[in-house]
Amino acid sequence: TTVKLGDIKVTFDNPEKAKKYAQKLAKIYQLTVHVHGDTIHVK
């Protein structure tokens, strides 16, 4: 599962960890989390 934020891409083996990371980023940057299959976009 890949978390994308602009040019930053972080890949996790564990989808749950990816989701938590995405939510953490979203909170920090006051953005929202969008899940598209294996990719989680923070924008």
Rank of each mutant, 00 (worst) to 15 (best):
A26H: 02
A22G: 01
A26E: 04
T11D: 04
T32G: 06
D7G: 13
K17I: 11
K4T: 09
H34A: 11
V42S: 01
K4R: 12
H34Q: 12
V33K: 00
K20C: 13
G37H: 03
H34Y: 12
Q30R: 07
N14K: 04
K4L: 13
T11Y: 14
V42G: 01
V42I: 11
T39M: 11
V10M: 11
L31E: 03
G37F: 06
V33D: 00
K43D: 08
I40M: 05
V33P: 00
K17N: 10
F12R: 00
K17Q: 12
N14L: 06
V10F: 13
K43Y: 14
K27R: 11
V33G: 00
P15Q: 08
Y29A: 04
T2C: 13
T32M: 08
L31G: 09
A22N: 01
H41S: 09
T1D: 03
I40E: 01
K24E: 09
A18I: 03
T1G: 04
G37M: 05
K20G: 05
T1C: 15
V33R: 00
T39G: 03
F12T: 00
I40G: 03
H36W: 10
T11M: 12
V33C: 10
Y21M: 05
I40N: 00
V10R: 08
N14G: 04
Q30I: 06
A22T: 01
T39L: 09
Q23F: 09
I8H: 14
N14I: 05
L31K: 03
Q30E: 10
K20A: 12
T2Q: 05
A26R: 05
E16L: 09
E16M: 08
A26I: 05
A22M: 05
Y29K: 03
A18C: 11
K27M: 10
G6C: 15
T1R: 06
H41A: 06
D13Y: 08
A18V: 02
F12E: 00
L31T: 05
K9W: 14
V33F: 06
Y29F: 11
K19M: 15
Q30H: 13
H34C: 15
N14P: 01
K4F: 13
Y29I: 06
V35G: 01
T39D: 03
T2K: 05
H36N: 12
D38M: 10
H36Q: 13
D13E: 10
Q30M: 09
V35I: 13
Y29D: 03
I28S: 04
G6N: 06
K19A: 09
T1W: 14
K43L: 14
L31F: 06
E16K: 09
L31Y: 04
L5S: 02
V10C: 15
Q30W: 09
T1S: 05
E16C: 10
T32K: 06
L31I: 05
H34M: 12
G6P: 02
G37V: 05
K43T: 14
T39A: 05
D38C: 10
K4E: 08
I8P: 00
K9L: 13
K43N: 08
K4A: 08
H41E: 14
D7W: 15
V3E: 02
Y29S: 04
P15L: 12
K9H: 11
V42L: 15
V3C: 12
N14E: 06
D7M: 14
K24L: 15
Q23A: 11
D38R: 10
A22I: 06
V33M: 08
K19D: 05
Q23E: 14
V3I: 06
T39C: 12
D7I: 14
I28K: 13
P15M: 12
H36D: 14
F12Y: 01
A18H: 01
K17D: 14
H41Q: 08
V10A: 03
P15S: 08
L25W: 05
D38G: 08
K43R: 13
I40S: 02
K20R: 12
K4V: 15
K43S: 12
K43W: 13
T11Q: 11
K4G: 03
V42N: 02
A26W: 04
V35Y: 11
L25P: 00
K4S: 08
H36C: 15
K17S: 12
D7H: 15
T1N: 04
P15D: 05
N14Q: 05
D13Q: 11
K4I: 15
I28L: 13
I8T: 07
K43G: 14
D38K: 10
V10L: 12
V35N: 04
V33Q: 01
I8K: 09
K43A: 12
K43F: 15
I40L: 08
V35M: 09
V10E: 01
T1A: 07
D13M: 10
K27H: 09
G37D: 05
H36A: 12
T39H: 09
K17A: 14
T39Y: 08
V42H: 01
H36I: 15
T1M: 12
D7V: 14
D7L: 14
A18L: 04
T2H: 09
T1H: 08
I8A: 05
H41P: 00
H41T: 13
K27I: 09
Q23M: 11
V3F: 00
L25R: 00
T11R: 13
H34E: 14
L5R: 03
V3A: 03
T39S: 05
T11N: 08
I8C: 15
V42R: 00
P15T: 06
K27A: 10
V3S: 03
E16R: 07
N14A: 04
K43I: 15
K19G: 04
G6R: 08
G37W: 06
G37T: 03
A18F: 03
A26F: 03
N14H: 08
T11L: 13
L25T: 00
K19V: 11
H41W: 12
T39N: 04
V35W: 10
H34F: 13
Y21G: 01
K19T: 07
A26L: 05
H41C: 14
H34W: 11
V10Y: 09
D38N: 14
G37R: 04
K17G: 06
K24T: 09
G6F: 08
K9T: 13
T11K: 12
T39W: 07
I40W: 04
A26S: 05
Q30N: 14
T32I: 11
V3R: 03
